[in-house]
């Protein structure tokens, strides 16, 4: 099913703040097997100039992808989520995410395409902290695979 092209450029309202906790960062770092002490020890983080423990680079995806959920679930867009795979992912950081951040995401649809029956959507998530400072931008490409021929 072709996606509605009029969605290109559409932005969604900022999400309610996600509060980044030290223990959630620790849980994530343990899950990816990364023992870097800047993720778990505030003193080690301070030694690198960070106000508190920081999160691994890909941690923020959980927050931006949840925000993107309001886009992909928009029934007007017509995306078949059961056939969606993750195509590309990119992050550009102004600073690392750290414990104590209250992060809000503004999602924008950058592109909508159909290629060889696959529906492709590019979503940009701008992540700001509680002071309005930019923290990171996440670009996510989702591909809804064409149904197999009957």
């Amino acid at each position: 099913m072709a996606l509605d092209q009029s969605f290109v450029g559409r932005s969604y309202p900022p999400t309610d703040p996600y509060e980044v906790g030290r223990e959630k960062i620790r849980e994530f770092a343990v899950a990816v097997g990364d023992a870097n002490p800047v993720y778990t020890d505030p003193e080690a983080a301070k030694a690198h100039g960070h106000a508190d423990v920081i999160a691994p680079p890909t941690f923020v995806f959980a927050i931006t992808f949840k925000a993107a959920g309001q886009v992909v679930a928009d029934p007007q867009l017509g995306l078949d989520y059961s056939r969606v795979v993750h195509g590309d992912q990119k992050f550009a950081y102004s600073r690392p995410v750290r414990a104590g951040d209250r992060l809000s995401v503004t999602s924008t649809i950058e592109a909508v395409k159909s290629l060889a029956g696959n529906d492709i959507i590019d979503i940009r998530g701008e992540v700001h902290d509680e002071t309005g400072e930019h923290v990171v931008t996440a670009w996510t490409k989702l591909v809804s695979r064409a149904p197999e021929e009957a």
Binding site: H48, P56, T58, Y93, P96
Partner: peptide, 26 residues
């Protein structure tokens, strides 16, 4: 996989906060 791959970079530089951009295609 994306989280594991960047560990080669963050273990090299020491401070993961030094990563300015990171992108992959699956």
């Amino acid at each position: 996989t994306m989280a594991e791959a960047i560990r080669v970079v963050t273990d090299w530089v020491g401070d993961p906060g030094a990563v300015v951009e990171y992108g992959v295609r699956f």
